[in-house]
Amino acid sequence: MEIFVLAFFALGYLVLGGADIGVGMALPYLGRGAGERREVIAAIAPFFLGNEVWLVAMAGVLAGLFPELEGELLSGNVAVVVPLLLSWVVRDMGLWLRGRVPGVRWRGFWDGAIVAGSWGLALSLGVLLSDVLLGLRGPVALLPALLVAVVLGAHGLAFAALRLRGELRRRAAVLSGGSGEARTYALTAAALVVVGVLGGLRLPLTAGPTASLLTPVILVVTPLLVAAQAWVWWTFRHRVTGPSYL
């Protein structure tokens, strides 16, 4: 059961968080001018906070249920985890700060931070997965990582196609061709789930003794967490019609 809890949050992050990482990666392609970029960011704005907590929750589940693995996985991959965290921080701050000052240069700078952070995050997730999945380390791990990044990028485009309108939507749907936007999203999401599951199968997942206490608690609160997220999805289910607060 503990393994399913971990998988739930890890896969939830890959699918939900993966979409907003992908949109960040594709930002220069999707948004050609400052106004367009702002609208593209509005596609992920209400979701990115709620998405990234899936990874935080996964870290919490690791700390509580698999503390030994947590230490091994993180400290054993310090060369990947440090860039991952830095990319995450840079990307987040780009999203938070870009709209706070009106200047074109200010926005351009932080849009750059969003793009760089999104690519950094995607590639470091990819490198981490290639270590776990294939046991590859060093520069050679960048090849499978690039593949993971491409899948994340495609997933982001699929998500953007579902959220944006007009020219932006057409640009985002470059991979879907015509009307298959939802199908493309389902496909890229499935690809990420497969990668995540294969990675998880390679991890030594033996739950610690606290599981007997913690697992029931997690099982009780999880429906509540999903309901809260569902409220957000429902509230922002319509296509983006203009810029957001970011």
Partner: peptide, 11 residues
């Protein structure tokens, strides 16, 4: 820590 991330921070 796990309870903090799930019950508090997530929400």
């Amino acid at each position: 820590l796990a309870i903090e991330t799930l019950v508090a921070f997530f929400l």
